[in-house]
Design a protein around this nucleic acid. Structure first.
Lengths: 241, 241
DNA sequence: CGTATAAATATGTATAGACATATTTATACG
DNA sequence: CGTATAAATATGTCTATACATATTTATACG
């Protein structure tokens, strides 16, 4: 175990056991360095990792304080769906249902402010059964290559991830009831619960793509896991049954 | 802008524009330090932040490589529900529905391996309307103070966050149909879609508490946002309509 | 007594160098 | 020609020091 790790563990222990309660101002770096017999840089490293974990907050001159616990925090990873299905040892299947461009495409959410769009609807299957419905708009002003791609073999999700750079992402998750059309496509009774992930991806503020991914509620769940700290940024995974 | 930030921005640019494509081995620290005219430590700092962001991976001696983009990643924060409701400018209401202990409590998931348990069911309201149903088991072998708390005024969620230390958390999210009992408590028609968050909290591997939180599907959504990088750990928020 | 100004100070950035440690690469050997 | 062994090397850890910069704290002033 490295010195900074040992120091981090010790500091974490003091926080966990309320030796340093929420709101407490931690001793300054120099004093901690003296206490542990290390250089200031080593203490700084331990402190930085506790800041990243959300346990401490620091302000220049004002010092370092223990954060009040107010929320659970974890990291969420949403992988390429093909990998997700294949990881489970199931057969991945893909079907493009429709593709449109130009005047045929309506920007319902008025997100793209008039940009030329491509609209693709497709279905991802696991062992032949519907697993995810992907409904996607692509800004072809920003990604003109999308016009040359039929998306009959590769899904827009995967294609875009490889092609298009982006700078910010907004992900929304919700539960909903399947409408008539979605129910048919996913082989569900109308009104059945579905898990919906909606994502808007931007490059420097301009929307690149908007996607609504719909999963049968009975077959899908999102799992994130954290370890090590009182709460922490961390490894996570998506599982589905 | 600090030097390490400028360097990070430049490296990020090279990755985004495929000057350094996925799989590419980045020049060694010393060469980068020479190129930018800074010390090795400064380059290391820029590289470290890109590793944290999931864009680079490094192995001793083997070098630094650009990661293949395989997933979207974001940070998820689930706040204390009272804060969540109050932040929206709505009236927070709380009602304990039931509390049990001892032989009355069944550990359906066989999670606690025989530990003494406390079982609390309660309802969180926004402007008087049901917002979240909280169904919780607490390991009183680990948190004996939970026996002295009636939970008529403070919710177990909030009480535990202040009291009990933990080391790992597993969060599961899914869409489901409301059963008869849940539907009644949340004032929903039976079979209506609900958003379910289930969380198991452990301390050194031993379960501290297990909670199932159920939200009306029509009123709740989870939002996470990232910015700055191709993909990134980052600020996030929970919104609900 | 409040307010502007100056001094003090904890954190933040950056440097340069020494040594440790995984891995890879080169070399020698059976 | 494959395999064990030694050398080379990129990243990782740690130290010690200098200076920058928000903020706070103390001081002087109207």
């Amino acid at each position: 175990m490295h010195r900074y790790e040992a120091i981090r563990a010790e500091l974490l222990d003091r926080i966990r056991n309320n030796v340093w309660p929420p709101g407490f101002t931690v001793p300054r770096e120099e004093d901690l360095a003296d206490e542990f017999g290390v250089a200031r840089g080593t203490v700084r490293r331990a402190l930085a990792s506790l800041v990243a974990a959300g346990l401490l907050e620091r302000r220049k001159r004002a010092g370092t304080r223990v954060v009040e616990p107010t929320s659970h925090q974890s990291t969420l990873k949403i992988p390429i769906i093909r990998h997700e299905i294949e990881t489970q040892g199931r057969d991945y299947g893909y079907r493009r249902l429709s593709a449109a461009e130009g005047a045929d495409v309506r920007d319902e959410h008025e997100l793209f402010s008039g940009a030329a769009l491509r609209h693709v609807v497709c279905l991802h299957l696991g062992d032949g059964k519907p697993y995810q419905l992907e409904n996607r708009l692509i800004n072809v002003d920003l990604v003109p290559e999308a016009l040359d791609e039929a998306f009959t073999e590769i899904s827009p999700n995967e294609w875009l991830l490889a092609q298009a750079p982006y700078s910010s992402v907004r992900t929304t998750m919700r539960a909903a009831a399947a409408g008539a059309d979605v129910a048919t496509l996913l082989s569900l009774p109308e009104g059945a619960p579905v898990f919906v992930i909606e994502r808007i991806t931007r490059l420097d503020g301009i929307p690149v793509t908007h996607v609504v991914m719909t999963y049968p509620g009975s077959q899908f769940e999102l799992v994130t896991e954290t370890d090590d700290l009182r709460w922490t940024r961390n490894i996570s995974a998506v599982l589905a049954r």
